[in-house]
Design a protein around this nucleic acid. Structure first.
Lengths: 250, 250
DNA sequence: GTTGTCAAGTGGTCCAGACCACTTTACCAG
DNA sequence: CTGGTAAAGTGGTCTGGACCACTTGACAAC
């Protein structure tokens, strides 16, 4: 360690953070072990303490390290796995070693329902792309998805091939639309007849239903998705989170 | 605004952040509106720009605001609701206007299974407190919970009353144990006979099962909880999250 | 009108220092 | 041996600058 490229476009604090992250990933630094102190990092990389601290901030906010005042900064326990269910189905499956694919059931421009119009903040005459897909992992159906996409952000999407490529990848690469935020609610219920047929399961068998909104950096609604997952073939991971503290007065 | 107490124990940046947060909550600042720039805040509160920036950092990491380089900092869209399912059942229910209560089925010191021993990082002779509870909202059963608590952190907990008070509250107030981190996986399945009986529902009716680990600040395992929620009476909220970007090289 | 340029304003990064709050450890006095 | 204390080391907060990257809008040149 102890080396940093002053002429790179990558900020110093990121270079340092990545260097340390690499040491954690490689196992050189084990969970619970103490990281170099801010002052040590500053000296070893020849940067100010502010920059060293910013590097550690990066690791802390990424859940890779945690601080204890008066003692030091330490390597955090590894997460069970990365956030799941919020981002791309494709990435999700691949990270679990499964091969994702899709069967497009319908892909057409339609007027939105009032609820969707409200959720996507559309005007009275705006249309949406309604995309119905069955998502498969290693060829077996896992989920049925109905995505309502704000077509204003990606005119022409109705003619793109969404069976073989990820919607997110297409949005990013072709339409310069970058999904940055997502939130979702999840509930469980029995499979309806139509869902059961598509997912090759029995009616009333348990499914998980996720209602997800996706936004750009600036909270422009991109899509609203209702996903119906087979209960026996999918697990949601709710990422490691800070537990909110009870109120503290001054 | 424009006032800050230099003699408070509350850091300046937090005072500023809370002042602005209050303006957002009160509706004085609407979603999408621009916040004062870092330099403006620095001037108005008579602090350095670093401190002003730190205040905005606080709002950004809390999901209350977001930045756009070159344009400014803006008020974020309000979240659907706060994180749910990860923290205290009691707080969760109350935040939805329901009155939480518990029925303790069993509360005893037992040797852990191998899986629990591993998850809680216990030694071969360590014991756990196994706490089985039915959780109710407005008197109606919503969930069955089996908590395996690392009793080393809270000796004597087996004799405390857990029907009327929150486990987290007890840990914090009586045992000085502060749950700070949690992560969970969620799946859906049909209710087993025992669960169905406790939750007053039919066997095979959909339930959501959450497997949750709770840790202290320093990732000491506090408890491992398996919660079985009635599908028709509970919805998980997966907090608003940043979508991970695809890899960017230098 | 269109296009290009430039200035102003924003957040992003960085520096060299300062003092405070907290934890740990070593050591000394009892 | 016990208990208190002081020192060293840690992260936490804060200052007052500096320059860069990016966006926007006004304005001049075409």
């Amino acid at each position: 360690m102890a080396s940093v490229n002053r002429h790179s476009y990558v900020p110093l604090y990121l270079q340092i953070a990545r260097t340390i992250e690499q040491m954690v990933r490689s196992g050189e630094l084990q969970p619970g072990m103490q990281l170099p102190s801010e002052r040590e990092i500053a000296e070893q990389f020849s940067v100010s303490r502010v920059t060293a601290r910013q590097a550690l901030d990066e690791l802390v906010s990424g859940g890779i390290a945690y601080r204890v005042q008066g003692r030091g900064t330490f390597v955090a326990e590894p997460k069970i796995r990365e956030v799941s269910g919020l981002c791309s189905f494709s990435d999700d499956m691949r990270s679990q070693g499964l091969e994702p694919s899709s069967r497009v059931l319908s892909q057409k421009i339609v007027p939105p329902t009032d609820e969707i119009r409200r959720k996507l903040k559309l005007g009275p005459d705006d249309l949406i792309l309604q995309l119905d897909r069955v998502r498969l992992a290693d060829g077996r159906p896992v989920a049925f998805e109905r995505a309502s996409v704000n077509i204003k952000l990606c005119p022409g999407l109705e003619n793109d091939d969404l069976a073989t490529q990820s919607l997110f990848a297409l949005l990013r690469n072709k339409y310069d639309v970058y999904p940055e935020w997502a939130e979702a609610e999840i509930e469980a219920r029995g499979a309806l007849a139509e869902e059961a047929g598509l997912l090759e399961m029995g009616i009333g068998q348990p499914v998980m239903v996720a209602y997800r909104m996706t936004y750009t950096e600036e909270f422009e609604p991109i899509e609203y998705v209702i996903s119906v997952y087979r209960g026996d073939r999918f697990t949601f991971y709710v990422g490691r989170q800070r537990i909110p503290s009870p109120f503290e007065g001054e």
